[in-house]
Nucleic acid binder design. Structure first.
Lengths: 153, 153
DNA sequence: TGTTGTACTGAACAGTTCGTCCAGCGTTGG
DNA sequence: CCAACGCTGGACGAACTGTTCAGTACAACA
């Protein structure tokens, strides 16, 4: 599953994580490689799926979703596959993970206000038959952690 | 805190979230506005902090961090500010949130393997004096939810 | 030792986009 | 009626794009 990366690959990834719109010229310079090499490496990284794409980083509060919450969910056994397909159509869910432990799912949810959260949990989540129970944890603070990725351990 | 956005602003954001390297020409075309307008709006969105930046989306497994986990943490009262400053120097923490409820913090952690996770939790987290207790939830599955942001509710 | 591959460099190319400027236009609000 | 504002569309030189290719460096291998 993992891909073998050398230092230059990681350097390229770090640069493009720091600034996803950096020109390939600048990437090549800062990684001390030729432009042709930078192109071929970037293409390889994308084809291998290491770099899945590029995106704008949006501030949820400034965008209008002033309220964020983690909603932990317990679901019926063997219903994850079905539940997962629902998630695709729920734009409020920013991130979802099936986890081991007391609960089955952790959903990171972004909504405009408490009323929208109520609607989401009661009218959307708990209407799903596979959902056994939910618990909402309001996010009180959320620091921006935009550092380089961890080196191989 | 929130910023007033019109439909065109949201369209621009959606486009750049879908492809952070899209040329401004293409953005202008697809938003049905002039190029000059696209430039000025994008600059405004960045200055207002709605768009915080651009980044490459990296697949954690392919990158070499095959193991992801949520670590819930209980900390001493009034120690959040101090704890938050520590987080900046812990590259394994991909996302952190101070939450209401049974626990105080939820940390999304990415590491190479179980051994690295053990080291992280025991040698790094639990060495922090403010940490009262931790609980690790392994991430068993993590669907990619790359849709448009939720519309204003 | 020589040979075959593989990976990289550095230069070249036309085409495209960048970032900025500005005259002109339409709408809004006093 | 006029001023202020935001937008358009066209222009500009500079920079970047994406690709190709001959030449070079280095490893594996016999």
């Amino acid at each position: 599953m993992a891909v073998r990366l050398d230092d230059i690959d990681r350097r390229i990834i770090d640069l493009l994580r720091a600034d996803g719109r950096m020109s390939i010229r600048a990437v090549a310079e800062r990684a001390h490689i030729s432009r042709a090499n930078a192109y071929s490496r970037l293409e390889r990284l994308r084809n291998q799926g290491v770099i899945r794409g590029f995106t704008a980083v949006v501030d949820p509060e400034k965008y209008g979703t002033a309220l964020s919450a983690y909603v932990s969910v317990r679901i019926e056994q063997h219903s994850w596959e079905r539940f997962r397909s629902y998630l695709r159509d729920i734009p409020e869910v920013d991130h979802a993970a099936l986890v081991s432990g007391d609960v089955d799912l952790l959903l990171l949810v972004r909504v405009a206000d408490a009323s929208a959260l109520r609607t989401f949990v009661l009218e959307r989540l708990q209407r799903i038959p596979e959902v056994k129970s939910t618990q909402t944890m309001f996010i009180l603070d959320e620091p921006h952690l935009e550092g380089p990725l961890p080196r191989d351990a």
